[in-house]
């Protein structure tokens, strides 16, 4: 039982990270039906900037660790917002009425460029993310949970709540929802659609910055290639939940985290070790495919029209 509980904790932590990154994908998709494939690199930039700031502060000041991490996060956010904004302006804005796959290619190009720039700034080495928060371990029923895990789950829940508030209770949110329903009419109603789209990108990038700090602190490592796989997984999570749907991204992220943890933990025992943890991704993808075959627009996605 303690092993099972432990796997649930592992899955929820991983799922929280996926969920926060998935929110960035789904927000942009909701508004302009574009998959921002460079989003994973924005997470990477966030982790890298935080790595530098936290490392410097930890070495040169005597501020309390929690405050240092907070400052690091606050420094990463504007950097990521700038990158997000730049992506929108340079890679996507011109292509808003282009064929659907054109932005995919610019996104790939932008990913390569961002990775190479990060490599020039932060070197090729895997960097040890400063471990300054005392990683207290708590025991519940034989399972362990660390302070960082609690912080990650709590932060992601707070972020989701905050984002829901922004989207459903503020003028910006009303404008975003209007633009996503019909950009042209929203424009006629006095919404500056370009600004709203840029704001969406920036909001997603800010979330990515926080996710970058989470990942860095949790795994203790930052590397210039760290964004690709994370971005891909989070994208899968967003699709699983129903891309374009905020609650869907959260649900998809959590679910994917749990599926991966339980898959790695139990496939071996269930199949008498014919299949092992080496098939955990197969398991995750099969769940994904099964969900999509049964519900072709994700768990919470609306049924899309035939001309989507």
């Amino acid at each position: 039982m303690d092993t099972f509980l432990q796997q649930i904790i592992n899955g929820l932590t991983l799922g929280s990270v996926y969920a926060v990154v998935a929110l960035g994908y789904t927000m942009v998709y909701g508004i302009i039906q574009l998959i921002n494939f460079a989003h994973g690199e924005v997470v990477m930039i966030g982790a890298m900037v935080a790595f530098t700031v936290i490392g410097w502060l930890a070495a040169n000041t005597t501020l309390p660790p929690l405050l240092i991490v907070l400052i690091g996060t606050l420094a990463a956010i504007p950097a990521c917002v700038a990158v997000g904004y730049a992506l929108e302006i340079f890679a996507y804005r011109r292509l808003r009425n282009a064929p659907r796959l054109a932005p995919l290619i610019t996104a790939i190009g932008a990913s390569i460029v961002l990775q190479q720039l990060a490599m020039m700034i932060w070197s090729r080495n895997p960097l040890g993310f400063p471990q300054i928060i005392p990683n207290t371990v708590y025991h519940i029923e034989g399972a362990t949970i660390t302070l960082i895990q609690i912080a990650i789950i709590a932060t992601s829940v707070l972020l989701m709540a905050g984002l829901t508030f922004v989207v459903y209770r503020t003028r910006l949110g009303v404008a975003m929802r209007a633009a996503s329903q019909n950009a042209q009419i929203a424009g006629l109603m006095g919404v500056n659609v370009n600004q709203i789209i840029a704001a969406t990108f920036m909001l997603g990038a800010a979330l990515a910055a926080v996710a970058g700090v989470m990942v860095g602190t949790y795994y203790g490592i930052a590397h210039y290639t760290m964004g690709s796989l994370l971005g891909l997984k989070a994208f899968c999570a967003a699709v699983l939940g129903g891309i374009g749907n905020l609650a869907g991204a959260m649900l998809g992220g959590m679910l994917l985290g749990l599926v991966e943890a339980l898959g790695a933990g139990y496939i071996g025992d269930l199949t008498n070790n014919v299949f092992g943890s080496n098939y955990q991704d197969v398991f995750a993808f099969l769940v994904l495919i099964a969900v999509l075959v049964l519900r072709p627009s994700g768990l919470l996605g609306e049924r899309i029209g035939e001309r989507a």
């Binding site: 092993t3 796997q7 991983l14 943890a261 898959g263 790695a264 933990g265 092992g276 943890s277 991704d281």
Partner: peptide, 22 residues
Amino acid sequence: LPREKGSKDTRDWKAVLTKIKG
């Protein structure tokens, strides 16, 4: 024990390690 695997990009080993710990 039966072999456990990740990938060359795996960062999250908790699930595999939890199983091993058991």
